[in-house]
Design a protein around this nucleic acid. Structure first.
Lengths: 246, 246
DNA sequence: CGAGACTTTGATCCACGTCAAAAGGCGTGG
DNA sequence: CCACGCCTTTTGACGTGGATCAAAGTCTCG
């Protein structure tokens, strides 16, 4: 039960005891990866599936001119590449943002797991949530101004980290530099700094020592028009993010 | 053989004759949908899978303030919602951009098809390509200036339309208004207009009567840093888009 | 205690937005 | 076949959010 993966998957639908124990077996042996290390590089292929157990990582793409876009954050409980072995080459890289604990799961084991319908459905779910998140990010970057854009990210991370019990109240560890946030949001590092000051002055957040405190979640949600429906959490159990968006 | 769906799926891996004929049976009965009509609205659920046979449609998300972001184009051969029935509610809407011909396929038929491994793999492939495309769009909107951004879109559409034989040489029908392109690219309609004039003045494209002619594909590719690897076409058959990116 | 990595600040610039109006298509009905 | 009206494209003037550049603070950690 204290497995970050099952904890997450059960937010979609309950798993049988047997499924849960199969998923428990999978999370060993682990290895530790230092910060700022690539787990997978664009163009590579792989016969293993990586699962993040601890730390923050990201998917990113680079442009020849050196500009970088982070296209997803990977937090504990997230797979790097669940189905990627169907393709011959990765179309993006994955790198750690902080020190991470990772498991490498042989493709074969994943395929065994997906013989079980409950697990197969749960894996589909994570795939579809990833896709939904990409669409929401596109909306975020394409249509929101810089300040609500950053605020939206903070709301999303709160919800996602709560799912795996990594948020305490309305605050969580956010081991990112402002430059990394800039690469995520498509704005300059300097502007990220200014935006965060604005959010601070509005009394929406506090941010010190890589730790984010959301001081007024309701207003942060309203300010960023956050609606967490794209995370497709089970509807029986309304989460804070959904009850606040009329 | 003259089925827009199999034509596309075989660009990933060849299908058996039997698979191909199963996929032929699926594309009837069709219906015609006028332009600017929603096929699916955010929040809805559905037990059918829609397949576009003719025309352009798009996935989009709206903000409460009325701003819209188009997050994907759907062209002939594209599924609207292959796996979406796993979720209870759509997290985005799908609307036609031009008059479209569509088939509605009951969820049950899709599940029968995926019993066949070749088809199942092909369906996985389209899902992963969709996801890869979303990541590339995020890079495009987040990191490129307006002109290369639009140019990148034109390159992508050329490759995708060629896959289904809907491009003639380096040109194709593009039934979009500049306002729709603006909603896709996260820039204003006025600026789209100016960017297109720039591309025209650079002798990269011609655009009249909803018809786009790429006058110098190599330069357009270079200008937009286009690299079609994210479309994951079969590697045995190098397409134009890949040989031009060193 | 010093070095390198982050954050913060200030000044200036420019890509793109907004507003508003003119000019072209294009379908409809007379 | 023309004229009207509507939608789309184009143009111009002007405003602004965010970029860039550069330097000064501040952390953190060896």
């Amino acid at each position: 039960m204290d497995n970050v993966l099952t904890r997450k998957l059960e937010k979609f639908a309950p798993l049988s005891a047997e499924d849960r124990s199969l998923l428990d077996d999978i999370i060993r042996p682990t290895r530790t990866v230092p910060a700022d290390t690539d787990l997978i590089r664009e163009g590579q292929s792989s016969n293993e599936v990586r699962l993040i157990l601890k730390g923050f990582a990201c998917r990113y793409k680079m442009l020849p001119n050196g500009r970088r876009q982070i296209v997803a954050y990977l937090i504990p409980g997230d797979f790097c590449d669940l189905n990627a072995f169907i393709l011959e080459a990765f179309d993006h890289s994955i790198g750690t943002l902080s020190e991470c604990t990772v498991v490498d799961i042989p493709r074969q084991r994943i395929m065994e797991l997906t013989d079980r319908p409950g697990i197969a459905r749960a894996f589909w779910w994570v795939t579809l949530v990833d896709e939904g998140t990409l669409r929401e990010w596109l909306l975020n970057i394409g249509q929101r101004g810089a300040a609500p854009r950053v605020a939206h990210l903070f709301c999303e991370l709160l919800v996602r980290l709560r799912i795996v019990d990594l948020a305490h109240e309305d605050s969580y560890e956010l081991p990112l530099t402002q430059a990394e946030i800039a690469d995520t949001m498509g704005i300059s590092p300097v502007h990220v700094n200014r935006v965060m000051q604005t959010l601070r002055e509005m009394d929406l957040i506090e941010y010190r020592r890589k730790s984010l405190v959301i001081k007024d979640l309701d207003r942060l949600i309203a300010f960023s028009d956050f609606n967490g429906a794209y995370l497709h959490l089970q509807s029986g159990k309304p989460e804070r993010q959904s009850i606040k968006t009329p």
